[in-house]
Simulated assay, not measured.
Amino acid sequence: MKRKMYWLAVALLVQSGLFAGTAAAEGNCPPGMYPIGGQGVRGCAPIPGAQRGAAAQQAAPPPAAPTTRWGTRWGAIVASAATSDAGAATGRLTKSDALSEAMAKCRRNGATDCKVMAEYSNQCVAWVVPDGGDAKALGGLGEGATPELALQKAQSYCENRAGNGCKVAYSACSLPEIEPI
């Protein structure tokens, strides 16, 4: 009977030691690892793919702060009805710079009635005038993302009963430019 009790006690100790060892192995494994072993052999092994993902997240540098931006560029068209003089400016940093330059060009031959026809930024502009025709013919101004779109819009305003259409008087773009911050 003593012998039976002895083996029963040994069996219980072995059994409880294995279960305790397994539980301890699970609790002792670091993140990204899982317990391995059995029958008294305990250890931790890496979870496939867990280390690569963690290392990649830790190694990725923060995004760099931008050092440039898109800067607005202005253009203007100014014309005199009395003398047909005109002036234009493109690619200026401010609207007032574009208007001042265009106005000065219009007045360089003595025109005193120069008026702003168009002021624009970050796009293209086209000005068409009647090609012959009568005094009631109308030209047009158009803007667009490309010179072709601006010209197409300007031509849509052209009215010339003589049938000659309109010809391009001016076409230019003042597109945004990359500048340092």
Rank of each mutant, 00 (worst) to 15 (best):
131 D>A: 14
64 A>G: 11
130 P>T: 07
118 A>E: 14
22 T>R: 09
18 L>Q: 14
73 R>H: 03
75 G>R: 09
89 A>Q: 07
129 V>A: 02
146 T>L: 02
7 W>D: 10
63 P>E: 12
143 E>Q: 15
38 G>F: 13
150 A>K: 09
16 S>K: 06
60 A>L: 09
91 G>R: 11
66 P>C: 11
173 C>F: 10
51 Q>V: 09
66 P>F: 10
42 R>K: 06
86 A>L: 12
28 N>P: 02
21 G>K: 05
36 I>M: 13
85 D>A: 10
142 G>C: 08
163 G>V: 13
66 P>G: 12
136 K>M: 15
113 D>I: 03
122 N>T: 08
78 V>S: 02
100 S>D: 10
130 P>R: 07
177 E>V: 14
37 G>S: 06
8 L>S: 14
112 T>N: 09
181 I>Y: 14
148 E>T: 13
156 S>P: 00
13 L>H: 03
146 T>G: 02
153 K>R: 14
83 T>V: 08
131 D>M: 08
114 C>M: 04
108 R>N: 06
101 E>H: 08
78 V>Y: 00
101 E>D: 08
36 I>L: 13
29 C>F: 06
34 Y>F: 14
159 E>V: 15
167 K>T: 09
13 L>M: 11
60 A>H: 01
166 C>G: 12
65 A>M: 15
109 N>F: 07
83 T>F: 03
121 S>K: 13
177 E>Q: 12
21 G>L: 02
77 I>Q: 01
91 G>W: 08
67 T>R: 13
68 T>Q: 14
118 A>T: 13
141 L>W: 05
118 A>L: 15
20 A>N: 00
73 R>M: 04
81 A>R: 00
142 G>Y: 08
83 T>K: 05
63 P>A: 13
43 G>I: 08
38 G>W: 11
24 A>P: 04
92 R>K: 14
37 G>W: 06
30 P>C: 01
54 A>K: 11
39 Q>H: 15
9 A>D: 01
83 T>P: 04
155 Q>G: 02
131 D>Q: 15
47 I>A: 03
12 L>T: 08
61 P>V: 06
119 E>K: 06
7 W>I: 12
130 P>C: 05
93 L>R: 10
138 L>R: 15
93 L>S: 08
67 T>I: 11
70 W>M: 14
140 G>A: 02
163 G>P: 15
174 S>V: 06
114 C>A: 10
46 P>V: 05
168 V>T: 09
29 C>K: 06
54 A>W: 00
126 A>F: 03
78 V>P: 01
12 L>E: 09
168 V>Q: 06
181 I>N: 14
139 G>A: 04
99 L>T: 10
54 A>D: 08
152 Q>L: 13
154 A>W: 06
1 M>K: 01
8 L>H: 12
44 C>F: 06
128 V>A: 01
149 L>M: 04
2 K>P: 08
83 T>M: 05
76 A>F: 00
49 G>R: 05
19 F>Q: 07
